[in-house]
Design a binder for these strands. Structure first.
Lengths: 335, 335
DNA sequence: CGCCAACATTTACGCGCGTAAAATTTTTAT
DNA sequence: ATAAAAATTTTACGCGCGTAAATGTTGGCG
């Protein structure tokens, strides 16, 4: 930088200022710097920068399972938002393992990020550790809630998701049963079950929940395996609402294998609906009726709230900002 | 570190040595350090470390499309391998855009990584830029080849993939047509086409390639849209080999919509096969017959070759190590 | 017991940059 | 034109660590 300062005829502190914010120097100075810049292609050393800045320009993004297309997609949105805001996002994922989630928090600490967007594992998360982390680093939770942790929460209104879908299914046919995991790794499932129970009762129907066994994040596999079992004697009403699209994808595969036709036509054996608008649900057989989450809105709001949190110190004890997004019913052929 | 050195009763340079390699200090010293460590939970500042080390312990991983479950999955394997070898992996993805691929190379340069595992965009890649990058940073290509770039290549034997599948399909029914994109974003498609052509001729059949239009990485969408068109008059022989699983997933959705039954039974209208063993292909309707890539083997070998490349300087002009993995035929119900 | 090698310590410097304070120059407003 | 404001330069220090060289210490060996 010293060298570059001399060849560009400008002092080093000014160059430093320029790289922190090109608009903080005079227009003519900026032009001179940028001219010198493409003659010598100098780039400041990020490590030296980050060592000396108390706050780096890094933003951590944590998703529970990066190979899940849903999380991959939303992470992609968030990354773009961060870059546009002038930050460097880093994506980390514990792949469903608590120990890795804790390791990730350690890694993040040493990255001294300006802020973190965190989609926790949920049920499995080490809440004490998470709470301690959020005390030190401005963190916005997304997708999945952990009570009283973080500066804000941006998620879907999962209760409303199910009630929306239950409304639709009841309006167009028999009341649905709920197909879910008995020990879901993610707390959203519980909200969805509550939404289902409430909506069914509100409409005067008796709720019926099918809780299937299964551990971990292999939702399609669980949906398929348990689907084979459950569908050998399809539930009365023959309308099935799956707790999420990935379970539905497995269930559809099971229905297909059993020779059951799925759809909303009179001739169909079964109606199946999911939730999340998983990227693949457009290509299932038949295409899956579902509730779509607004990826763009969630990620935008999440980043916006994080940037707020970053430049306003946490007023200790102040209430967390919680924002829930409603879903959009996507009617396809499965229900 | 100064502080920690004094409370632990050991000199700072020795502490520094310890963090670079705990085995480089005497056993008794190591014990004393580690004892002090859990009393004061000190952690060295990575930015200061990386500034002073000529080579960081970072490894860059680049995949063309991180939301594609195939790449997400292989990236996950690679990340794990890197961590086990004591490195810090960073996953980056251009999401199909060349400009972003070039930006990523810039980002990587400033990260001063020990090495990079790079799955290039392929056809779209800026080859000159990529070549320059690989001159400066030890890089191992994977998945997709760019001629004479990088220190090694670890990929699937794509020609063999198709010939393997063609053999199978011909042995069990009519010779297949090849369903592919006319302008695939990835060069592997060309290898696969060549494999198809060669295998068909070798078996004495006339090859028949259906090249459908479509841009970008929305393979399912293209497979679906063009599938609807192509399957309105199914090709003779009614055996279709798709250039990759994602196209096949779209094609299966189209077949389903058109009421065509897919399978290898006598009563089926169509046989469909894919390639890659996409995580979702077990749950298509019917489950997709495909060629599986060995994720674990590819990632292991890739990391191994990169570590080699890292501690042996590139003998200028020396030949690149190319390793191709054979696929395994996965027989499911679609063909 | 004394010697040698391996390991630790002391001392010292430098990495590339942020940043503060004071002095100076340039720009803007009056 | 002149004063005030804004931007820049000069000077100087520190961040937290790697690393080299010289010196000191330890433990095992004959």
């Amino acid at each position: 930088m010293e060298e570059f300062a001399s060849v560009s005829g400008i002092s080093r502190p000014t160059i430093s200022k320029y790289f922190n914010d090109p608009n903080s120097v005079r227009q003519s100075t900026r032009a001179r710097i940028e001219e010198a810049l493409d003659r010598h292609d100098y780039r400041p050393n990020i490590y030296a920068i980050n060592q000396n800045r108390r706050l780096t320009k890094n933003i951590g993004i944590v998703v529970p399972y990066s190979t899940d297309p849903f999380f991959a997609e939303i992470a992609r949105y968030i990354e773009r938002q961060c870059v546009e805001a002038g930050f460097s996002p880093t994506l980390l994922s514990p792949h469903g393992q608590v120990e890795l989630e804790n390791e990730i928090m350690e890694t993040l600490r040493s990255m001294k990020p300006a802020g973190v967007l965190f989609a926790p594992l949920g049920r499995a998360s080490d809440k004490a550790e998470l709470e301690r982390f959020c005390k030190d680093v401005p963190t916005v939770l997304f997708d999945s809630n952990v009570e009283n942790v973080g500066r804000a929460l941006v998620a879907s209104d999962n209760e409303h998701f199910t009630s929306q879908m239950v409304d639709y299914l009841c309006r167009t046919g028999a009341p649905p049963v709920l197909f879910e995991m008995s020990t879901p790794p993610n707390p959203n499932s519980n909200k969805r079950r509550n939404g289902y129970l409430g909506a069914m009762r509100h409409l005067g129907h008796e709720p019926h929940v099918i809780s299937v066994p299964g551990e971990g994040w292999n939702f399609e596999e669980i949906g398929y395996r348990e689907g084979l079992r459950v569908l050998s004697a399809p539930p009365e009403g023959r309308s099935i609402l799956c707790s999420n699209d990935r379970l539905a994808i497995g269930l559809l595969a099971a229905a297909y294998e059993l020779g059951l036709s799925v759809g909303h036509g009179a001739e169909a054996d079964l109606r199946v609906a999911g939730m999340d608008d998983h990227p693949f649900s457009r290509f299932t057989c038949p295409p899956l009726t579902t509730i779509s989450q607004d990826y763009a809105a969630i990620s935008e709001k999440g980043v916006e709230l994080l940037l707020d949190a970053i430049d306003t110190d946490a007023p200790a004890g102040s209430a967390r900002t919680d924002i829930l997004f409603e879903g959009r019913l996507v009617m396809r052929k499965s229900a």
